[in-house]
């Protein structure tokens, strides 16, 4: 047996190990480019009024949940009550980012389903969304006291995800102070 003939076996073995690892991963799940980086700055009107403005200064000193949503988004309605529940159970304020929506539509939606948000930033053109690397609504970010993004959920939050990751994460950040 010549050593050269072993090469194909070794290559295939490495290939199999690698593909086996690949099976344990979800290729379409993308980590945010912002994890452990400062939240992108913004300065936009609030949903309530053009005169009021909200900026990223709002994150200073508080652990915050940022929820990107829109009234035309079905999945947002599915996670809506969970957002309320997280805020109630952890005491973490939720800042909404209303994405590519109309004022009337968004306000009507909040009127109908309840408003869990401390304040809602209004982003009708989706510009803040792009700065935050939002691909599609809903997305939810966990922002630390110093304005650093710690975690991100893509798509609607499930109850399981809330109980197993999101709430423990928020509690852990709270205790870290």
């Amino acid at each position: 047996m010549r050593w050269r003939l072993i090469v194909p076996v070794v290559v295939v073995f490495a290939l199999i190990v690698m593909l086996g690892y690949g099976l344990t991963r979800n290729p379409s799940e993308l980590p945010s480019a912002f994890i452990d980086k400062p939240a992108p700055s913004f300065d936009v009107p609030t949903l309530d009024s053009d005169q009021e403005r909200i900026t990223d200064a709002a994150f200073q000193g508080n652990i915050t949940l940022v929820n990107v949503w829109a009234s035309w988004c079905v999945a947002c309605r599915a996670e809506h009550e969970l957002i309320t529940e997280i805020s109630r159970r952890t005491g973490v304020p939720v800042i909404g980012l209303n994405y590519k929506d109309t004022r009337e539509g968004a306000l009507r939606w909040l009127g109908r389903y309840g408003n869990p948000f401390a304040v809602v930033a209004f982003d009708p053109a989706g510009e803040v969304g792009i700065d935050w690397g939002v691909a599609a609504v809903p997305e939810t970010f966990v922002v630390d006291r110093d304005g650093t993004i710690r975690y991100k959920v893509v798509g609607a939050i499930t109850r399981e995800e809330m109980n197993d990751t999101l709430i423990p994460k928020l509690r852990q950040l709270k205790q870290a102070s």
Binding site: L30, P31, S32, A33, P40, I130, D131, W132, G133, A135
Partner: peptide
């Protein structure tokens, strides 16, 4: 774009 969405 990489800054916002990653190398991906």
């Amino acid at each position: 774009l990489v800054e916002r969405y990653g190398e991906w």
